[in-house]
Design a protein around this nucleic acid. Structure first.
Lengths: 349, 349
DNA sequence: GTTAGCACTCGTAGATGGTGAGTGCTAATA
DNA sequence: TATTAGCACTCACCATCTACGAGTGCTAAC
């Protein structure tokens, strides 16, 4: 059921036009294009065929044609050419990212903001889920007679700490011993291993000599590990939605913004997406309210692992080729930056 | 130029009605209220007077009256009675806050979310500006041969750290010495003192023996101090705006959301506001786009100092009495919780 | 001082009709 | 056989109009 060359050309032209104008495109408009030297009638026949095959729809009898999700999918898979970015765009991206490169979270936030600015869409990014991250170093530092700081450093350079109010007395030597002991036990374990494999429970019995200390510490240790697993969501350019004709209806704009404001759901949705560049179009999104939207996401890596995601969300009518190219270039930049030659230089906020 | 008892009663009734319905209120509606046993004509006369005095306006000839900013101001200053919260509301607030009490930032975020939920308005909160916070303890920890963690603990219990890639070799003793030295120099200084008073510059010369080390460290030290000063902004219930008739116009909703999305500006605006409960109505807000809005903010304290702010923003037509009571009760709760008996148990994220 | 009565105002909602972009179908053409 | 011209038809959109009703201001009576 392959489409003829001419049908593909027409479909492509319709998509191109509709993406630009957001108006249903008619046969007359198309026949004026130099690359389509057919009369309106001929084009109408072809369009009728394309509609029968499910690639076009018809808002009402006397309106032009609108591409369906199926058409966009075909376009993305076969027709679209990824646009090479211009020198200016490339240097813009590179320069804008450079400024904030030494703080990981800031860089990601910045990248999302840049992405929404260039594409005029709503962008988002999530930091990596760190359950593959490996513990490297644990320390306990006395602050005053009743406060101790628990510090956990991971292989990826992330540092977490927590000030703990102790209920039992301690000495600096005790703390040191305990910290060494913990480092010995947990070093090389991933965070999720540390949390799930009951090492913690076993550990407590090991050092029965200072179980009071451990009892104060362990719940805090676990909570800090849980914190380290947490994924942060950044979202930028939410109000770009207001410039898109599809959302000039208040109800739709409201729905969109309400949907995107649900941080937990959005985070989950993004985590679940495949790695690499992924495009999901309209009805392919099963979530309520996302049926009119397309998402383009890509994953970025830190030192080849620990994959986070960045992407955009917009109406199905979007510049797939251009946006994809931009995201691709952006993640390339991020990947290079996060290749940890200056490794571990990310700091806590 | 005092208003007569009757005028006040009528004005109060108009405000009450308008706040509920968002519709201009007419003389007939008012005369039906049992507490206002006058004929529509009488009330019309009084309303005409009130309009002349600037308390009411007239969207068009054949519409009812709408309270002006001046009317709301009078209402807030003199007429409004703060509503005592019901037992249910009080326990709701107390319980909902309790859950997250041991992490400072989370608590604030949670409080903002709770506030927007109860008031059906958009809420926000900022964490305290910490320039009054006093440094307590500085430490340098070796992680591996080229990475060192700089850790700064403040009196208020905040812990910040940063992993630093060193360009010169170091020994553990050197680090210890330097850390002790730094603690000795900075302990008791506020963050802003440490940043501004050139202690840092002087300090560098003091320990000329290991100036290479210090050169690597000091820029990071300053950046971390700057981070510590930073104020976080939380915003919740942005989409509540869509349920407010005043913003059923797309342009207005867009303007509102765009305005609130500017984090830096909002933060600045909030920082500048007076402490205690502050109500600013309509035109009293000089910022562009805030002229149709009212803000109610309150400050909360940590251990009596380090004041952050929390509040709501909504149309000038809002339930000033009720919202004020809620905010008051909420900040009371926060103040108690932050009285640092379990002090310093806030952790970094 | 208060109220009833009445003419007047003006926003809102619904009905009407013209316009134009676009279609589908048929018959003529290359 | 594929393409095109011609034509009747459809339908969203816009502007105009009208009726309605809530509310006012003013005047005169109570």
């Amino acid at each position: 059921m392959d489409l003829s060359e001419r049908k593909l050309k027409i479909l492509s032209a319709i998509i191109g036009d509709y993406v630009r104008t957001a108006e249903p495109v008619g046969s007359r408009t198309l026949s004026k294009k130099p690359e389509l030297g057919y009369s309106p009638a001929t084009i109408r026949n072809e369009m009728a065929d394309l509609e029968e095959l499910g690639y076009l729809t018809h808002p009402h009898t006397s309106a032009g044609r609108v591409p369906s999700d199926k058409a966009y999918r075909l376009y993305v898979n076969a027709l679209m050419d990824k646009k090479e970015l211009s020198k200016e765009e490339k240097t813009l991206i590179a320069n804008r990212l450079k400024g904030s490169m030494n703080e990981f979270e800031k860089t990601i936030e910045h990248a999302a903001s840049l992405l929404s600015e260039i594409t005029n869409l709503t962008s988002f990014a999530i930091t990596p889920k760190k359950n593959e991250d490996v513990l490297k170093y644990i320390n306990l530092l006395p602050v005053d007679s009743e406060t101790v700081i628990l510090m956990i450093v991971s292989e990826s350079g992330k540092v977490n700490n927590r000030a703990i109010k102790m209920s039992v007395a301690y000495t600096e030597e005790n703390l040191n011993l305990l910290a060494k002991n913990m480092t010995y036990n947990y070093k090389g374990k991933t965070i999720s291993q540390a949390l799930t494999n009951n090492i913690i429970a076993n550990f407590e019995t090991d050092i029965i000599a200072m179980s009071g200390l451990a009892e104060d510490l362990m719940p805090n240790f676990m909570r800090t590990l849980e914190d380290m697993l947490n994924v942060n969501l950044y979202m930028e350019g939410l109000t770009n939605i207001f410039n898109i004709p599809e959302y000039s209806d208040l109800e739709k704009a409201k729905g969109f913004i309400e949907l995107l404001s649900k941080k937990e759901e959005m985070t989950r949705k993004l985590i679940e997406r495949d790695d690499g560049i992924t495009i999901s179009i309209g009805e392919e999104n099963i979530e309520d309210g996302l049926q009119d939207c397309s998402l383009i996401t890509a994953s970025y890596a830190i030192n080849g692992k620990l994959v986070g995601k960045i992407g955009v969300i917009g109406p199905t009518r979007m510049e797939y080729g251009e946006v994809t190219s931009i995201i691709e270039y952006l993640t390339d930049n991020l990947n290079n930056a996060f290749r940890l030659e200056g490794g571990g230089e990310y700091d806590e906020e």
